[in-house]
Design a binder for these strands. Structure first.
Lengths: 348, 348
DNA sequence: AGTTTCGATGAAAACGTTTACGTTCCGCCG
DNA sequence: CGGCGGAACGTAAACGTTTTCATCGAAACT
């Protein structure tokens, strides 16, 4: 408290050694007597010395900080991702500089630009970012990993959720449960995740129900679009017996449309979503869905990034993929209804 | 790209001026001819010059970064808070360094310590942090604002959710709806929010139902504790007609206990929570609760912090308070049941 | 005993800025 | 015409580190 902040010089004076020795001791570089070490440590502790990170960065060129550029995400996805990144980062002594809430390209540009020089590496999740963008806005020596991005550029490895396999598994699950066909509610047209999930749906249908006609309704990941899609499905001549929505919010909206129409889920129509958001457990019937460990996504991203920072090029392929798991609850009809599982998992 | 990074010297050489002039131009300090300005700007743009923030910080002592120390929070609260802070920070050209996920005192200490020198100010939300802690771990000249903290120290202003008023309003609302008495499920003993909410409950009961006996069950903010509390309430001789839980998760657990026992909500027992988490809308019946704009909390915190950083002491009191709003849904029984509102608000 | 080697230490350069202080030049007033 | 003031600009110090290099002893060889 009180006086200014202590510098390395103050410590050196107090310990009666040179600043070089102080630096050596505090950085554990060796080549120092045990006595000197003691003296330095005591002096440092006594003065409450904390190395100035700016000065250190200036000369070492490292900031021990990594940057996360994220879209304006709401809810769990966002927090889980940060949690995963932060946890892994802290385990490696790295700090986390976040920049969320950017809407457009220029916003993303600004975010990436201002992080220049403040971070040793970046984790980027943004639909506006592609390889060309990065080449233009990132220093060539700044490692970066992309999240959930179609970019396939050796300089920027990416980690993706295995949307295809997840969707495929869920559709197969529903078909296996006895439904002849499954209808699909899409996500927004430009969205990469959405496209992949649709691919998975098509693949599963082609493989396990090749004769069944594809029933595809357009949605945009919102609850409202799910509601509309649900009504649309009910109005069709060929009412589906099973519906797979591109994400959970859409499924929830769809669920409300069905409820409103007096359709029972899953007895009359089976329903499933994708994401395993918290709400999925709490709607009734509870929603079957595909679960992704977002925190793991963040963690993997950070791990990959540190590898890059240590000079290892991305081992093998540029793209890593994170597996998804089918979570069977009530809404898809294949659920064993017993007291234990009917209850929200949090209680178990 | 390509070559190393350009420094101010390179720009100076290219523009045929001194580095001092470059600095003046780029910082808009004036005292420079329009021609020189042009030359410098051109050179800087041409070389893709970006000032080194470490060097700048070293000499100015400012980092243009603020730190947020947060507990290991899940879900929306966390992300909303960061959103609020980040948005306000970016509007002021500040960066955001986050450190979440710390479990105990030593973890919090480490978080605060390592931010030393990396930030110009801090926003701290942690139950382990009190005035003494800060005096010990923070440089005396580092501004900090506390979130949701009982600390009343002129050096560290705090922003609190108006838990008391919120709880009071909700209890009054339930009493006004015709219930003679309201039972309360508490939060964890050491939790500040929980204590305040209980205060609000007691105050409202004392004021509006002075003769009714207080029915208080212990909970700990978890769904499970709510479930247990619900069963306990049902087992009591004097079964309550209205229950107010210290937070939404508790209320949800309680709701499941009631459902399990065949009790109808709100017909047999009215129920309300606190926080307005996303789930509150989706359980059935939808949960009446007290809503707080968490993003506003973050924003206010950042605003207050910048005032502090600009030297203005906290205006007036050390503590600011953020209002809460009663959100009436189905579970408390005072809801107008019509199609529009029965539907989740997201659709409206 | 003389020379080499090596470990511990200190002096000083370097990192890229900002900024206090000089210097130069010019116009202006006395 | 001499001095003065001020604008434009440059020089150099300072910020707090890390790190290279030199120095100094003492220990270890020959």
């Amino acid at each position: 408290m009180t006086t200014k902040k202590a510098t390395i010089k103050d410590v050196a004076r107090e310990a009666k050694v040179s600043i070089a020795s102080v630096s050596r001791v505090l950085n554990g570089l060796g080549g120092v007597t045990a006595e000197t070490q003691d003296a330095v440590r005591k002096a440092a502790a006594h003065l409450h010395y904390v190395p100035d990170s700016a000065a250190r960065s200036l000369i070492t060129g490292r900031t021990h900080t990594i940057g996360a550029v994220l879209p304006d995400l709401y809810g769990e996805f966002f927090s889980e991702l940060i949690r995963g990144i932060d946890l892994a980062a802290r385990a490696r002594g790295l700090h986390l500089l976040v920049s969320s809430s950017h809407d457009g390209v220029e916003d993303a540009t600004a975010a990436v630009r201002t992080m220049r020089g403040r971070v040793d590496g970046m984790i980027i999740l943004s639909q506006f970012v592609d390889g060309e963008f990065l080449d233009r806005n990132l220093p060539s020596d700044l490692p970066a990993v992309l999240l959930d991005s179609p970019v396939d550029n050796p300089r920027y490895p990416s980690i993706n959720i295995d949307n295809i396999a997840g969707a495929q598994a869920m559709v197969k699950h529903m078909l296996d449960a006895g439904h002849e066909s499954v209808a699909f509610i899409t996500g927004p047209a430009g969205n990469y995740d959405a496209q992949e999930r649709e691919k998975g749906y098509r693949a599963a249908m082609a493989q396990h129900a090749p004769k069944a006609p594809l029933q595809i309704i357009t949605g945009d990941f919102t609850e409202e679009s799910g509601y509309r899609a649900g009504r649309e499905l009910l109005a069709q001549a060929r009412r589906p017996r099973a519906v797979f929505a591109a994400n959970d919010m859409t499924a929830v909206g769809c669920l409300y449309a069905f409820k409103e129409a007096g359709i029972r889920v899953p007895e009359d129509i089976a329903l499933a979503g994708f994401d395993d958001i918290l709400i999925a457990r709490y709607v009734s019937p509870s929603l079957s869905t595909v679960s992704v460990s977002i925190a793991d996504l963040g963690k993997s991203a950070l791990l990959l990034l540190t590898e890059l920072m240590e000079g290892k090029g991305p081992q093998g392929s540029n793209t890593r993929t994170l597996r998804c798991d089918v979570v069977v609850r009530e809404s898809c009809g294949a659920h064993q209804t017993n007291v234990a599982t009917k209850h929200p998992p949090a209680l178990v």
